[in-house]
């Protein structure tokens, strides 16, 4: 479980996050939704330590991350898997080397055992046989899946996904969403997914938090989101014609 309390973050005069309080529960896909520029990615980067918050605390299962020493932070970071928006695969490494990388750095597995783990992860994301391909040879969806395979290869306790289905076709998006949901339950991970895709919210948003202009406005499940009465959230949820039609039909 990741608990965030009273987080504030500014870049110069731009106050990006204002007193954010949110809890990401373990064994669930926790979705962080909001319009572009609302502070989702900044909150995520503060949570994993890429940005330092100006105030507030971030705790991983009771361990207060932003007050830790560098060595202690390193230990926590090794329990984190991160899927970047652009996948951030190491482009000078093959798919196999990319997935093997965290294993090679942090475990004492033999080469054979490491390769078995790579094949298991590739199988899990349905990319058998892609071992020797370079990232430049992969499609957008394949890159995301390799990114997920790399993120889970070292058996993380926490998984962060920054817009995992941006730029993907609807079918591949659903595939990626379901994959994230499955592995979250399978490994009982605390998963945080940043998205502004309402399909993802409805598919996998077991716990969804809505952030608007740096303020956490709403917290609930994907079942509750349709009936929420927060104006900013309803504006966000029913922005598309499809959702407007759905709302009209509903009632």
């Amino acid at each position: 479980m990741i608990e965030i309390k009273g987080i504030n973050k500014s870049f110069g005069d731009n106050h990006v996050l204002r007193d954010i309080d949110v809890t990401f529960e373990s064994g669930k896909a926790n979705l962080l939704i909001g319009a572009s520029g609302s502070g989702k990615t900044t909150l995520c980067k503060c949570t994993v330590g890429l940005h330092s918050p100006d105030s507030g605390t971030i705790s991983y299962d009771g361990r207060i991350f932003n007050l830790m020493s560098r060595t202690e932070k390193k230990e926590v970071r090794r329990e984190i898997g991160f899927l970047f928006q652009g996948s951030a695969l190491f482009d000078y490494m093959t798919v196999e080397e990319n997935i093997l990388f965290p294993i090679k750095m942090f475990s004492n597995l033999t080469k054979r055992e490491g390769l078995d783990r790579v094949n298991f992860c590739l199988d899990r994301v349905d990319l058998n046989g892609a071992n020797k391909l370079m990232p430049s040879e992969l499609s957008g969806g394949m890159k995301k899946r390799v990114g997920i395979a790399r993120a889970i290869s070292a058996k993380p306790k926490y998984l962060f996904c920054d817009e995992p289905n941006s730029g993907l076709d609807p079918q591949t998006s659903i595939l990626i969403d379901n994959l994230i949901k499955e592995i979250t339950h399978e490994y009982n991970m605390t998963t945080v997914v940043i998205t502004h895709d309402m399909n993802s919210v409805l598919e996998i948003g077991e716990h969804t938090s809505f952030i608007h202009k740096g303020v956490m406005l709403w917290d609930g499940t994907n079942k509750e989101i349709m009936d929420a009465e927060t104006t900013e959230l309803t504006d966000f949820v029913y922005a598309s014609s499809f959702m407007k039609e759905l709302k009209r039909m509903k009632g």
Binding site: G49, E75, F82, Q85, A88, F90, D91, F101, M105
Partner: peptide
């Protein structure tokens, strides 16, 4: 290139 494509961030998040 590694910096702008977030590969360096990926290393940092891994605790490297």
């Amino acid at each position: 290139t590694m910096r702008v494509s977030e590969q360096i961030d990926a290393l940092e998040i891994m605790g490297i």
